[in-house]
Design a protein around this nucleic acid. Sequence first.
RNA 1: GCGAAAGUGGCGGAAUUGGUAGACGCGCGAGGUUUAGGACCUCGUGGGGUGCUCCCCCGUGCGGGUUCGAGUCCCGCCUUUCGCACCA
Length: 904
Amino acid sequence: MAAYPFAQIEQKWQRHWDEHETFKTPDEPRVAEDGTPREPYYVLDMFPYPSGSGLHVGHPEGYTATDIVARYKRKNGFEVLHPMGWDAFGLPAEQYAVKTGTHPRETTEENIATFKKQLKRLGFSYDWSRQINTTDPDYYKWTQWIFLKLYERGLAYQAEVPVWWCEELGTTLANEEVIDGKSEVGGHPCERVPMRQWMLKITDYAERLLDGLDDLDWPASTIKMQRNWIGKSEGAEVDFGVVGRPEETIRVFTTRPDTLFGATYMVLAPEHPLVSKVTTEAQAGAVEEYVRRAQQKSELERTELQDEKTGVFTGGHARNPVNGEKIPIWIADYVLATYGTGAIMAVPAHDERDFAFAKKYDIAIREVVRSPGQADAPSPEAPEGAYVEKEGTLVNSDASERAIDGIAEQGVKLDGLGVQEAQEKIVAWLDDEGQGRPATTYKLRDWLFSRQRFWGEPFPILLDEHDAPKPVPEEDLPVTLPDIDSYDAIGSGKSPLEGLPEWVETTDPETGAPMRRETNTMPQWAGSCWYYLRFIDPGNDELPVDPEKEKRWMPVNLYVGGSEHAVLHLLYARFWHKVLYDAGVVSTKEPFQKLVHQGLILGEREFTRYLSDEDEHAVSAEHVDDGKDQRTGEPVRAVEVPREEVEKQGDHFVLKADPDTRVEARAHKMSKSRGNVVNPDDVIEEYGADALRLYEMFMGPLEQVKPWSTDDVAGVSRFLGRAWRLVAGEAEDVSDGGRSDTITDAEPSSEQLRVLHQAIESVTDDIEELRFNTAIAALMEFLGEARSWDALPKAVAEDFVLLLSPFAPHLAEELWERLGHSGSLAYAPWPELAEEHLQEETVEMAVQVNGTVRGTINVDAAAEEDAVLEKARAEENVRRHIDGKTVQREIYVPGRIVNFVVGS
RNA sequence: GCGAAAGUGGCGGAAUUGGUAGACGCGCGAGGUUUAGGACCUCGUGGGGUGCUCCCCCGUGCGGGUUCGAGUCCCGCCUUUCGCACCA
């Protein structure tokens, strides 16, 4: 028999909520019980991609957290907006289409139906009338509209960009979707080929995206990751002339302009446009070969060769603007074409990479910064390494004596200056001479915003025969995807849409001239960049969102989602939001005020022993790394061991049968291949949705990575069963409406009030801080006490049910009804804490002697210090420890502790 | 390599500003109840001690330090997890 009739209860109340539209959020806030309008509170989950495999237990973690907050806020008089939708464009549906011929729309609809059914079983208080779907033309009409805004503002442009092309997927991929030269999805090999692409100028917003981070209530680590991603770096640009080619200039970016005198060579990225111009005939062969090989390497392969820097001399030379020195120009792939200017001045004495390179190719190393305190030492003949600290004194940096031929009228001297002063002086000098200027660069690059896919938003763009773009007029939106039945076009190296001439070929609505539709589509990020706005006003066919409503609800008060979106989604959405702000569409500069990442839920803990592949001999776990015995390099095989066969020995687990063999004990990420995936449907079947919700919150802190344990679900299930019996008594069926006969109309005792109000205090504080695990512990403690009472005053039971309701809403509704209420408790006010009930008449205090607890005493809460100390001294065990010794000091912390410090 | 977070019983985890370490739950043990139970109820449960209504010692990754008192603060290590990867 189940602990309580959860299946009936959950079904009953889910139906009730649906029928009564309990969680439908009106556009105008309602008036609270006290007559004031409810204050808006917007609590949002990152909406899911409805994958074919359905919900996994990770989804309800964040969703339960937001649901608790939503339900709690409603009870506290807020008008809560708590919506859900589908981020439904995406590669898997398209790949499935290629394989089976099923239209992605069909797959997507089915998956959404599954997801929705699964989510509804969990009893989340979403306003389903606001459900949105990014693949719905009524939705993506506005995604296209926003793209037009970007285009109008000059933030969308076309470029020939070398992009990752994946033959297997028949599509291009963004840098971040390619790992190790292979696609993130599926692990197919990829290569870089140039293609016409749409780019968004997110770099124009770099500074504002950086500034905006200051006022957000976000995890520090996420803010830091965004800062690093934007990667602001301040320094200077310096122009170097090319010897023998007065018309050319090589511009470099450096954060260390003070070391300009130490530049003994230059390096261009292999892709740099000047490479061919500076290369001499003698070096042409070697240079071409190097460039060719660099192109084949992925960025990761380049970075893998960390300590083996390679390069080739071009034969050309540049002229250092500060002293006219002729320095060789090399190319090397450790210089990235995409960062700074794609060229560097190499200062081997003060940069580790340049140092390693100079050593390898025997290029001069000139020290120009001396570490503090070493100012007078001679320059070492053969320095050991680069001195990279940004403090010290400049040396060997004097060109004041001469005007530099064709470059400068007046030389400059940095000797004797500190790094900071030297930087200021040299930049000012370069600026005066027209040879350089202060500059700031960002790591952030423009956003590659087009994909060669079918299943994405079409661009509202027409192209003439020269590929010159013309926006589709606003009134003609949406540009819908064509109905197709063949995917043969995929894999041809073009977008699938390319193969549909009846869709592609169109005319200019103004002039009637023949035009082609843009056949690229938008990336999956597009729809998720603004969905939080659409929830506010999902049916609006005039605008993406009504300005009045937007003002009422924005910004999102609480946004919960995985930390895997710490950079990309959250940065892209912030970027669009700022553009929409500039366009007057939204009133806030930032979309998400408070952000929380839920931690990953791992599979059950597993014990693994290792056997040698060769002869099956046991290999102790500490020797195994990377699937090999690290002592011999022999491959090993992992074998799962049942819990009963292992025991703990010191810090690690060993086989009971062979205590010398250590066993690996850890939880792994849930994955199909590992077979450790827990399906929420199964858990609901066995324990109910309330138990699943409660367990996911009870596992530990929301933000933390936690291993799943099905045994532990039984614990929270028992708790719910006890709560059921406390109020419903021995009722076994939902239809009997029974109530425990221990519930009375009596006035609560002061003890009962104290226990209740302790729970009110803890649960309230903990929900406010999103500490749901300890909130549940407090509810359990209350229940433990309440069950020992002979009679339970109805008023106390009611407050307990209200406290329980955000966590286990179905059970709480049922108990609420049995306590004599009709209708939902969703808007019943949250129990109010009355401090006076918390006061205890006596308090227990620990008494220490020299910091070690020797006894406890019960004293009157209002007792004076003297009385407490006297009682403490009188405590038998304490007296034993202080007798015959001098008490040197008495520490008294009211209500907490007494400590006697005695001599020996 | 760089950066961030975290190391507490057999396990998940508690512990406001430094103030009785191990709340709450799982597991385990004992007992009760029941035709039976993977149900329910009660009690116990960090380790050790010739101690078992008492008391003592040890104990929050390791080594130091500050303090009457440290899981908590400081210094130095170790380990794990998660990010980032030649950013000039």
